[in-house]
Amino acid sequence: MLRFITGRLVLTIPVLFGVSVIVFLLAHLAPGDVTTILAGPFATEAVKEKLRISFGLDQALPIQYAKWLGHILQGDFGTSIANRRDVADLVFPKFVNTAILALSSAVLAYIIGFFAGIFAAARPYSISDRVVMGVTLILGNAPPYWLGLLIVLLFSLSWRLLPATGMTNIMGGGGAWDVFLHLIQPMLTTAAAPACIVARIVRASMLEVLSQNYVRVARAKGIRRSVILRRHALRNALPPIVTICGLQLGYLLGGVLFVEVIFAWPGIGNQLWQAIQARDIPTIQGATLVIALAFVVVNLVVDAINAYLDPKIRASEKAGAT
């Protein structure tokens, strides 16, 4: 197991290198000149040039990249062009907020997805299966900016149950309960699509496994249906489910942008959105890099879980150790 994880860790190095190159280039290839935004449309070329030199933007791209990477490796993400603060100070607290939203949404999505998927797989092609799958099809494809507004309309405007925006109450808020109340609506919005995707994968994966010969053998042995579902089927259906769950979490960590904007959730997506509007290159790079890093880490964890689930990998480790 340990050897497997070490191997996968080594493999992430080229991935991260590639990510850093793309992140760096993306910001530089994007149209628009940061100096125009900073100095205004009427600034002279001399002022702009001075600004460029002060940010090191006049140097060749490879040199800029090498310098940037060197700083990143030392934990220095640079200074935000838009508001002159350390990018690290700007990005990391926001990332924690995003992680709170993404993780809680993911947990909710997994729970709903698992139960809905197994419920449907246990009675394939029945009316209840079709209803569940129909709902997941609609809800899973509902755009979050539409679903989010719908939820706000219901919970905040019609029923006046929950706060519509922000993470804490401006007046004397900030406790865990307060954050939780603010979390419910964005969480529901965010969880909808992944819950449906997980439900569909759980169902498909379970049905696939239930058609395997070893399930028929288990039935021929007289094992009870519930035990077959739980023991024989679910255990074998897990790897694709774990993979999809990980992917969903990865997407959530980087992709809750719409939801963060709608609910004014102070997350990294929101931050990235503002940085893009301001052509704030260091912040864009920092935020993108953090998101990419989170994605890589999640995938690493998924691989480790799948390795643990596969007796072939576990056994080869044991054999390798002796």
Binding site: Y214, R235, N236, L309, D310, P311
Partner: peptide
């Protein structure tokens, strides 16, 4: 070859 459950 496919009649035994691979994870048990």
């Amino acid at each position: 070859m496919t009649s035994l459950n691979p994870v048990f």
